[in-house]
């Protein structure tokens, strides 16, 4: 799906929008469940239940939240820890640049919408055909994930001691499987996208042992940089 197509296909299309809602709610619930893991990890690291919940409500971006909990648990400096956690949210700024036109929001709507510009909402929005479906998918994901993530954070934090290992039921596969499902249409749509995807994965994995968690994913954005210099090819 390209930006050009976004602008052309703006006719009301019930089917595409229903599919977008299905995608969004599916992701919202599937990924939202990992709030259990965050709540439990946060309390285990030494945050109070209230602090875990406020962090999910205010930060609402998983990588940064896990990072801050990790610093608290590891007894690291909180100033550097907060700064690191915020920097991990840097990819959301890139997502915002991608979605600014698609969402086309202004004023207070933009202030509200900004809060939910994250991996999942971007993945669902960019997987849809047409601008209306992209918007529908974005907000369907935002609402369902915000509710699920915050509810499960509370459950995980309050029940941290009683909670078993979520990996036993395969919950650790839900995140990567959901993202794979969402980038799939782009991976099967052109060699240039596949090249970028493979390069990004290699960069992130190679950097993982060397850099703090979260930074390798941000670094992988350089895989998209050749787009800044090449002139041909539109996907």
């Amino acid at each position: 799906m390209s930006v050009i197509e976004d602008e052309e296909v703006d006719a009301p299309d019930g089917g595409a929008r229903r599919a977008a809602v299905r995608d969004g709610v599916g992701v919202g619930i599937a990924v939202g469940v990992s709030g259990l893991a965050f709540g439990a990890a946060a309390v285990t690291a030494g945050l109070t239940v209230a602090q875990a919940c406020v962090l999910s409500l205010l930060a609402f971006t998983g990588a940064s939240q896990f990072a801050l909990a990790g610093v608290v648990g590891g007894g690291g400096g909180l100033v550097a820890g907060s700064l690191g956690a915020v920097l991990l949210g840097g990819r959301n700024a890139l997502y915002g640049m991608r979605l600014a036109d698609t969402l086309g929001v202004r004023g207070w709507r933009r202030l509200l919408t900004a809060h939910v510009v994250i991996d999942e909402t971007t993945a669902v929005a960019t997987a849809q055909r047409g601008r209306a479906a992209a918007r529908t998918g974005f907000y369907a994901t935002a609402v369902s994930l915000y509710l699920a993530w915050n509810a499960t954070t509370l459950l995980g934090a309050a029940g941290a001691a009683r909670l078993g290992d979520p990996d036993v039921v395969g919950l650790d596969v839900l995140g990567p499987a959901a993202f794979l499902g969402l980038v799939w249409p782009r991976l099967t749509s052109g060699a240039s996208q596949v090249r970028v995807a493979v390069a990004a994965a290699v960069i992130a994995i190679a950097a993982t042992p060397l850099l703090p968690p979260g930074v390798p994913v941000m670094l992988a954005a350089v895989a998209a940089l050749p787009a800044l210099i090449t002139r041909t090819e539109r996907s």
């Binding site: 930006v3 990819r91 640049m97 991996d119 970028v196 995807a197 990004a200 941000m218 800044l228």
Partner: peptide, 20 residues
């Protein structure tokens, strides 16, 4: 910038899949 931001989600989400 358009081409870059268009490719960013593919790059970051694939990196996320690999790391997770």
């Amino acid at each position: 910038v358009r081409r870059f931001t268009e490719l960013v989600p593919v790059a970051l989400l694939t990196a996320l899949i690999a790391v997770q």
